[in-house]
Write a protein that binds this DNA or RNA. Structure first.
Lengths: 114, 114
DNA sequence: GCAATAACGGTCAAATAGGATAGTATAAAA
DNA sequence: TTTTATACTATCCTATTTGACCGTTATTGC
């Protein structure tokens, strides 16, 4: 049994998936792996996600300590930047290997059965 | 846009997650990464999954060409063995990095915020 | 004055995932 | 002869995730 942040997981792999699983989290982390991006910049990178879902996922990633949210409110134009925390940066190799596999698989077309 | 087996994904990372995402798939792949296991051997490794869910996940992993199912029915005692296909073996580094991160994270207790 | 941009939040609904429980067929073991 | 083991399948139900759509506050640009 693995425990992390009050949640229990039966396997080390399921712990990781509990944090980065779901339809959009790895996509967000992929776009943030080398960059700091604003909310609307993320939206442009991920046009098919709804705003509601994006902000929900950003919130849980922040709660889990994986990304940080920096608000520039020193005066008017609201500006919010998202980036990986130090803890979140430890996930870069994982996210990268997930992304690389997807990329390589499409290109090699290793798909046998059609 | 990435396409694989008739499904579309907005990002290379989401393609991978479409195949190995969900609560149990990486756990199954983790246990099969070096071994061939029978249905009930998998159950013993994953006592908290229900039989329904386990067999559903095994079926979709098989349909996606990631694992193969070998039935030994040459006479009576029914025996079914699950193992990775060659295609599935290309996922070993991905699954391993997911598992390693979970393992290391629990042990280092990198959890900052509590 | 009006539209556009930025960064969301709220509500509702649909889809999907997963769990609880029980049942099946066969055969061996006690 | 009853129980146990193997490898599932079938129903039913709940919980979680995600999408559609609209509203909000504030400010800049035309």
């Amino acid at each position: 049994m693995y425990k992390f942040k009050g949640k229990e997981y039966p396997c080390c792999a399921s712990l990781t998936m509990g944090l980065i699983g779901g339809k959009w989290k790895t996509v967000i982390l992929f776009h943030l792996r080398n960059d700091t991006l604003r909310y609307n910049e993320l939206r442009k990178e991920m046009p098919t996600v709804t705003e509601r879902t994006l902000s929900l996922q950003l919130k849980t990633l922040e709660e889990d300590g994986i990304i940080k949210r920096k608000v520039y409110t020193s005066k008017p134009p609201l500006k919010v930047e998202y980036s990986l925390t130090d803890f979140g940066k430890t996930l870069i190799p994982v996210v990268q290997s997930i992304a690389d596999w997807g990329h390589k698989t499409v290109h090699n077309n290793l798909d046998v059965s059609g």
